[in-house]
């Protein structure tokens, strides 16, 4: 009896996540299928690119500059203990391009644009606007999900590259202006240890994160149930699941890309 109870328990714990993963993959499949079928939703895609890219810029800039600054501050004061202050430039550059630029940008965009996607699509679902699209002979995945997926995947690397640069400038500010290190040394250390691959691989990660966050947020919105409360749950779920998926996939992507 105990074994049956245990199996039952395991089943109830894993049933929902497995079902959900399956449905996310199905949505991914139909997104890819509609991605290449004309006519292309240029107007919607442009609108989403502005929403995800341009409108996220202020928060991404502020996050990046302070991340670069705190990285410089912590590594400068820490490295001073063993006389390695000169490495600060390298630490900031490598951390920003390989890790913090893409990941923090993705988390910030999840909180902003991902939540907005889930809330908008969720409201459209509960007010029957998604069904209305279908009755007007318009595929809702093509009309709503594909533009957001494309915009997320393209805009995230763009934002990440800006975050990389701004983070390095923030680090420069703290190291050179606050701690009085020579500007030449900071720039030399930045360039000497930074490889193009660090930047490229960081941007590949950003692109994958963009795809993940837009897909999960659209999924959560698309399958919203139960009125205003459902929209709230979908929005929270979109942010939580996207953030976790970004951090988990970050490890595996890094392990693969930065071997």
């Amino acid at each position: 009896m105990f074994i049956i109870k245990a199996i039952e328990f395991i089943g109830t714990v894993f049933k929902d996540p497995i079902e959900e993963t399956g449905r996310i993959l199905l949505l991914f499949y139909s997104t890819i299928k509609w991605l290449f079928r004309p006519p292309f939703e240029l107007k919607n895609t442009t609108k989403q690119m502005v929403e995800i890219g341009i409108n996220s810029l202020p928060v991404v800039l502020i996050t990046a500059v302070f991340t670069g600054m705190v990285l410089a501050l912590q590594s400068y004061t820490g490295f001073k203990r063993f006389g390695a202050e000169s490495l600060v430039g390298s630490v900031v550059a490598l951390s920003m391009t390989r890790e913090l630029g893409p990941v923090l940008t993705a988390l910030i965009v999840t909180g902003r644009a991902g939540a907005a996607m889930a809330a908008e699509l969720g409201t459209m679902r509960v007010t029957e606007q998604i069904e209305a699209l279908e009755t007007l002979a318009t595929n809702p995945v093509k009309y709503l999900v594909v533009p957001r997926f494309i915009s997320g995947t393209i805009m995230l690397p763009c934002l990440a590259v800006i975050a990389d640069i701004i983070g390095i400038i923030g680090g420069y500010f703290v190291t050179v202006i606050v701690f009085g290190t020579s500007p030449n040394l900071y720039m030399k250390m930045t360039w000497d240890h930074l490889e193009m691959n660090d930047i490229y691989h960081g941007l590949i990660k950003a692109g994958v994160f963009g795809a993940i966050l837009s897909l999960i947020s659209c999924y959560k919105g698309f399958y919203t149930k139960g009125g205003a409360e459902g929209v709230g749950k979908a929005t929270t779920g979109a942010v939580v699941i996207s953030s976790m998926a970004i951090l988990i996939s970050d490890y595996f992507l890094s392990a693969w890309l930065f071997k």
Partner: peptide, 23 residues
């Protein structure tokens, strides 16, 4: 299939309970 269903749907108009206008 999806295309034929969409073609057929062009013969329909539907008024939803709360109108379901695109806001």
């Amino acid at each position: 299939d999806e295309n034929d269903l969409n073609e057929l749907r062009k013969k329909f108009g539907m008024l939803f309970q709360a109108a379901a206008l695109f806001d």
